[in-house]
Write a protein that binds this DNA or RNA. Structure first.
Lengths: 348, 348
DNA sequence: CTGAAAGCGCTTACAG
DNA sequence: CTGAAAGCGCTTACAG
């Protein structure tokens, strides 16, 4: 099984043609080539290591253009590795962005690396990449993006309802002016999070107020600036939701810096995809994405898929969680403002 | 080149014997086997993928028993990947601890995974592992541990002199009572760091005071407890050095919790191997290990080694850095103490 | 414990 | 653009 001969028989060509197609030889009609590539993926062809007992290796494809692994990658990878515990299977990090030559199929690119299936950590800019890999029939599951195409496998997280629930929590504490800080560069997830915020407000008859929304760089600094910007408004919010981890930390630190008390002067809710909420003071109330779980669920499916045990694509949307910690409380009994540069208002 | 035949010729046996030795066949005398394994490693034998243009894959071996990647692994891996940028080479994560069956050589274990060389993220408990891999002649470089054996390659960091320099800084600010929090479970690195602390003190004629040293679990909680313990002493320190990242954060947070001002009541110096010092308030003064650099330097050498360009083992000790931020200042003008449970002393 | 020989899977000029 | 056939590298009963 899983030899060029086997594939040749299925497609109705010679073993030589299969070999050429799989090796990326140019003189192959694109139609037979496509048939061969998808047959190879169907039977899980590994590139013929003679009788060698090859170990199953899965790939983790990061679409980032930098070799640096973010804490987010790290959590996803931990989930992937957890899924593989006991399977004897290993994971290889693949930097597609930098490495893939344009003239080979993704299947060949992965196979040359000994990789039998891939988990793709994608973003909005790489949806076509995910489509292309899936179209070749190479075992693939996308993390953190949702697709309409029924043949594309993905595991993502929808935090909308937990964000709405977070708004409930703030409203119940007495907040009516709830600020929002979202990244300038919006992707599907952030549109989603902003929607959850608006849904939550509407549920309580509160109209989203554009003057309470700021767009910021997705960095520590960006979160800090959101504090300066919102809290120097004539009518500042009494609570604020930041939709990304680093800006959440930045907002919290900036409050300390400018002398605003958390949660006394402003209730702060962050977004966490790791453990950041637990590494700051006070412990940050946050909507949390189950990042490791994303990797775990995706890799569990991929492992079954590669072993021929999963026929259907996986299309899973995991829920977020809302964790109340120490940065939310009742609104201040007075208007709390600062100057745009962070100095107290009294010093005008 | 790099065929069983080639190895057979070098060792003076038949190709069949080489094949058996490399496949872990039991009926091979251990002496010929050893010769074959080391010859295979010398010529960079890859396990015969016929004419397939195999991609060079290096392994990252984590000796942790958990599949979770720590932030520390993440930084090391980032360095490794940075070194591999442009080389067309990939990195595979290998969990040796869980996977390796006792009856195969490390060389075979790695080769079966398509891995040509390994970076080992070791700890005190796995020095023998590093020795065993190196003895087989498999390309290997150890991170963060130092070895006497001249054939073992390593890249580690010695923070001693930067820690002594940190003590200079504190003494110059006027501190004489400088506490130390070290992990209960000491390894080479921590012995080293404690030594740097004592050296720094002696340089200023200060005798290390055992009552200012606490041993703590290497966790956030541990760092917090160090604060309670030291600051409730009859003669508490006016400054304190914590030798690990998580406890550093924990100490800082605990100070906020019990109402101690940083650096007004106590100067705090942490240890960072990533970016933690920048994610807290106030920004943490810290001795920093160039973690990404460790991975970078190690992988650069390994890449050359695997390509046959490096004949000598690498034995590199990198310096740490000392970064002054916002948590160190002159000592308080009075004795600052708390109760063991963290309540202020006045409330006794 | 080891070798000679048969066999298997893939690749690649060669031919069309 | 594709096939038949030769060739290459590794593995594995078989024999000693």
């Amino acid at each position: 099984m899983s030899s060029v001969r086997e594939i040749a028989k299925q497609v109705g060509v010679s073993a030589a043609t299969v070999s050429r197609a799989l090796r990326g030889h140019p003189d192959i009609s694109s139609v037979t080539r496509r048939k061969i590539v998808s047959a190879a993926n169907r039977v899980g062809y590994t590139g013929g290591r003679s009788g060698t007992s090859q170990v199953l290796v899965l790939g983790y494809v990061s679409t980032s253009s930098s070799p640096v692994l973010s804490l987010y990658d790290c959590m996803l990878l931990s989930g992937v590795r957890r899924a593989l515990t006991g399977s004897g299977c290993e994971v290889q990090l693949i930097d597609l962005h930098r490495d893939k030559p344009g003239d080979e199929t993704y299947s060949e690119f992965f196979t040359r690396r000994g990789v039998r299936g891939v988990v793709v950590q994608s973003d909005t800019g790489h949806r076509d990449l995910c489509r292309a890999i899936s179209e070749e029939g190479f075992p693939c599951v996308v993390l953190a993006e949702e697709f309409d195409e029924p043949e594309i496998s993905f595991v993502c997280c929808d935090a909308r309802s937990e964000i709405a629930q977070m708004v409930d929590h703030l409203v119940q504490l007495g907040h009516e002016r709830i600020g929002l800080a979202v990244p300038e560069h919006e992707d599907h997830d952030h549109v989603n999070r902003a929607e959850g915020y608006r849904e939550g407000l509407r549920r309580h008859g509160l109209e989203p107020d554009a003057s309470l929304v700021v767009r910021i760089p997705s960095s520590r600094e960006g979160g800090g600036n959101a504090i300066n910007e919102l809290m120097s408004r004539r009518e500042p919010p009494t609570a604020m939701f930041v939709t990304d981890p680093f800006p959440s930390i930045g907002a919290l630190c900036r409050m300390h810096e400018v002398g605003l008390s958390v949660p006394g002067d402003l209730s702060l809710v962050g977004f966490d995809d790791g453990q950041m909420r637990r590494q700051v003071y006070p412990l940050l109330t946050a909507v949390c994405q189950p990042t490791e779980q994303l990797g775990l669920v995706a890799a569990q499916w991929l492992l079954r898929r590669v072993n021929g045990e999963a026929d259907e694509p996986i299309r899973r949307v995991l829920p977020a969680t809302f964790e109340v910690n120490q940065t939310t409380a009742v609104p201040p009994g007075r208007v709390v403002r600062i100057q745009p540069d962070g100095r107290p208002l009294g010093a005008v």
